[in-house]
Design a protein around this nucleic acid. Structure first.
Lengths: 189, 189
DNA sequence: CAATGTCTAGACCGAACGGTCTAGCTATAG
DNA sequence: CTATAGCTAGACCGTTCGGTCTAGACATTG
């Protein structure tokens, strides 16, 4: 039947809803409705309530994205190829049938202003992504790998925001094209 | 006395609070407390309530940022110089005494999922910024001005997100440094 | 069998939410 | 003066919020 454990169903429902409406835009009732569980289950698995669930969802989503980045770079000949593949993979993550969804970290970032633990988790996941990209840059012989990793992360996050605002994956597609454009990959002419 | 008209005080308070906690994270009570006005005033100036106020705040903030960009590019010798100045100006906007605040558009972007009009305004403002940067790129003789404008906007938004997650302006500072680095301004080596 | 620990189920609570509505203050117009 | 329009003031409403708590289902263990 429900092969997926209750805890996982909660994490997935929360992550999905947060990405659509943001942490403060989603009520417990909605999370429970989507996961098909009663309130008692939520507070059994997450005694810390909504905040603890959000932390788990953010960490989980962070891992998913990092895996996706590693896959994109796994068989990349150089950093640029990995970057393009990563960008295309993120398009698949962002663009869903019912619209463009936000980055999971961004979706909890503002609510974190009065939730220090959630803030810490968001920062950790984001730093992890930066380090992950920097690691691939270094491995592939890029100079100033840390700077380049951060630069690419900023580009991806920024294009994701533009796509979110437009509710259209095009900004991410165009970024992929620009990244792929080879030697012309300078920021400016 | 209160030289600032009531309507403006509402818009400013709302914009400031939204940037700190996001649209859904701020209650009317808080906006009214900051602006020092009763509920009646809000619904007199904004019959559409919170949503209409958010639209006004987003539009207003959009104008402020666009002016700031135009100032940054006003006496720039080339596009790179304008980009660096813009980035530094945004640091001033993002980094406040009580922490790093979000981009005003981003702060309402997620709540816009069930507020079509707010979504439209957010998209309009963001497109305006992109067009503004593209205009300066074109004026300064950059090839593919639209693409470069969008690219810079993505970089700025992305670095802003990183700064928000870290609660530290460093990612924006490093972007400015990278942009200023001249010929090395390629995305990758 | 009984006892125990895990998890589901949902009624219930006080607080905060966005929004409505009436009353009254103030200033300009006639 | 009175009349009227613009705005302030805040009580009040129904709804939804996150969170607590008791009851019971169910499987495991002795």
């Amino acid at each position: 039947m429900t092969a997926v454990p209750a805890r996982d169903r909660l994490v997935r429902a929360a992550a999905s809803l947060f990405r659509r409406k943001g942490y403060d835009g989603v009520g417990l009732a909605e999370i429970l409705a989507v996961s098909g569980l009663p309130k008692g289950s939520l507070y059994h698995h997450f005694p810390g309530g909504k905040s603890e669930l959000a932390r788990a969802a953010t960490l989980s989503a962070g891992g998913v994205v990092e895996e996706l980045v590693n896959d994109a770079f796994a068989d990349a000949a150089d950093f640029r190829e990995g970057a393009v593949r990563t960008c295309r993979a993120i398009i698949g993550l962002a663009v869903q049938p019912d619209g463009v969804l936000a980055c999971p970290v961004m979706s909890v970032l503002q609510a974190a202003s009065d939730e220090p633990e959630l803030r810490r988790v968001a920062k950790t996941v984001m730093s992890g992504w930066s380090a992950c990209l920097a690691g691939h840059a270094d491995r592939l012989g890029v100079n100033d790998a840390r700077g380049v990793g951060e630069h690419l992360l900023a580009l991806l996050q920024g294009a994701w925001i533009l796509a979110l605002a437009e509710q259209n994956g095009a900004p991410l597609e165009r970024l992929a094209t620009r990244l792929a454009a080879g030697e012309g990959a300078r920021v400016f002419s």
